[in-house]
Simulated assay, not measured.
Amino acid sequence: MNQKIDRVTLVVIDIALSAPVLLVLSVIDLWILIVITLKRQLHSYSNYFLANLVFSELLYVFVMVPMETVLQGVSTPHRRSCGSNVLYILIHSCIYTGYFHCAVCFSADKYIKISRPLKYATIVTGRICVIVIAMAWVSTLALSSAITVLSISIQDCLNNERGSFVVALKRKFLIENNTVALASIAVITALNAAIIRIARHQARAVAQQAREGNHPDASKTKRYLGRFLWSFVLVWLPPIIIGDCLYLTMTRRDNLDWYFVSKVVIKVFGLCQMLYGTIAMILLQEQFKDVLRSNWQFMKTKLHI
């Protein structure tokens, strides 16, 4: 009885912490996708990579979060079929891995745009944009399938051995975080650090020539990418390290309590990162700021504010 009460309490805490962030994040992400689709001035390859990243966030919000909540509060893994457990791990791995792959593509596009501004139009074409985005999702599916195979012990699953699914979750968690997440964070950190260094150098060169403060465009670029970089590093690394420690010290194979607690912590941190990074990405771009101002003026006129 106590375990069930604790599980229900955990779900309530999870919903209370996640719901406000989910609501704001989903509204902002949908707005970004809509304005990129409808506004011609936002039809650029960089914004297509941004839309791809936002789409991966929406998959996290509308698919993975509800699925995890159901698993925590309603579903009992040991009573489900082997196929449903495998499907859960595959879907979860696809969305989680896809988000980091899309973030790497977004950072790579920004690096090429800043480091090769004169050659950007010839390097990043419409065909290249489609190929890169397609490869990101194809590699996501392939890697997620491999993670699922490595996580699930097919013989244990078929025999319905108690604790086999918990062991699979532990394997999946450790593989995802210590390969996909950390590798992606390392690539994103390297790309954005190089971009910030280039932007700082450009700002100093412009300031020296003009004998005044930093050039506003370079300064904005540095702040924009700095926020995106640190939101990834500072928000994702702590929960990954905490989660690794929890799993390495877990002793009861058939107890999912620590798994759900760590997932709540990681999910809340991840949602905060997504919200912070998304807001930083739109507020420091003049194109999105102009659209946001026009939308706000339209709403004020309609609501007679």
Rank of each mutant, 00 (worst) to 15 (best):
residue 193 A to E: 06
residue 102 C to L: 03
residue 286 E to M: 04
residue 195 I to K: 01
residue 18 S to R: 13
residue 128 I to H: 14
residue 77 P to R: 00
residue 222 K to C: 08
residue 122 T to C: 09
residue 101 H to P: 04
residue 136 A to N: 02
residue 129 C to M: 15
residue 81 S to R: 11
residue 297 Q to P: 00
residue 267 K to A: 13
residue 143 L to H: 14
residue 269 F to R: 02
residue 13 I to F: 09
residue 63 V to A: 06
residue 104 V to P: 02
residue 291 V to M: 03
residue 188 I to T: 10
residue 99 Y to A: 14
residue 96 Y to Q: 10
residue 193 A to R: 11
residue 12 V to E: 10
residue 30 L to I: 11
residue 224 Y to L: 15
residue 25 L to H: 00
residue 100 F to N: 08
residue 31 W to A: 02
residue 5 I to E: 13
residue 76 T to V: 10
residue 191 L to S: 07
residue 249 T to H: 08
residue 88 Y to G: 06
residue 46 S to Q: 12
residue 210 A to K: 07
residue 170 K to S: 07
residue 227 R to Q: 10
residue 191 L to H: 03
residue 74 V to C: 08
residue 226 G to Y: 12
residue 94 C to K: 10
residue 124 V to S: 12
residue 254 D to G: 01
residue 123 I to Y: 14
residue 178 N to Q: 01
residue 115 S to Y: 05
residue 72 Q to S: 05
residue 186 A to K: 06
residue 229 L to Y: 01
residue 138 V to N: 07
residue 287 Q to N: 12
residue 30 L to R: 10
residue 302 K to N: 14
residue 27 V to E: 10
residue 71 L to G: 04
residue 144 S to C: 10
residue 80 R to W: 11
residue 170 K to R: 09
residue 165 F to G: 03
residue 189 T to A: 08
residue 256 L to G: 06
residue 37 T to S: 00
residue 39 K to M: 13
residue 40 R to S: 14
residue 210 A to I: 03
residue 155 Q to S: 12
residue 175 I to N: 00
residue 132 V to N: 00
residue 181 A to N: 01
residue 202 Q to G: 05
residue 153 S to V: 08
residue 143 L to P: 03
residue 90 L to P: 03
residue 193 A to Q: 05
residue 7 R to H: 10
residue 123 I to N: 13
residue 62 F to A: 08
residue 2 N to S: 12
residue 294 S to V: 00
residue 23 L to H: 06
residue 223 R to G: 11
residue 101 H to V: 03
residue 261 V to N: 08
residue 69 T to P: 00
residue 15 I to P: 02
residue 121 A to Q: 15
residue 135 M to T: 07
residue 83 G to T: 09
residue 281 M to C: 12
residue 125 T to V: 09
residue 212 E to V: 01
residue 283 L to F: 02
residue 178 N to A: 04
residue 282 I to F: 02
residue 32 I to T: 08
residue 119 K to W: 12
residue 93 S to W: 05
residue 106 F to P: 05
residue 57 E to M: 14
residue 211 R to K: 15
residue 87 L to N: 04
residue 176 E to N: 03
residue 224 Y to R: 15
residue 51 A to T: 06
residue 162 R to G: 02
residue 151 S to I: 00
residue 45 Y to C: 02
residue 110 K to M: 00
residue 104 V to F: 01
residue 60 Y to F: 15
residue 235 V to R: 03
residue 236 W to L: 12
residue 190 A to I: 05
residue 115 S to W: 02
residue 88 Y to M: 05
residue 41 Q to M: 13
residue 118 L to K: 14
residue 244 D to R: 14
residue 283 L to E: 09
residue 172 K to R: 04
residue 107 S to K: 07
residue 162 R to N: 11
residue 124 V to R: 15
residue 233 V to M: 08
residue 159 N to Q: 06
residue 94 C to F: 13
residue 11 V to I: 03
residue 202 Q to N: 15
residue 292 L to C: 01
residue 241 I to Y: 12
residue 81 S to I: 07
residue 150 L to C: 10
residue 229 L to M: 15
residue 291 V to A: 04
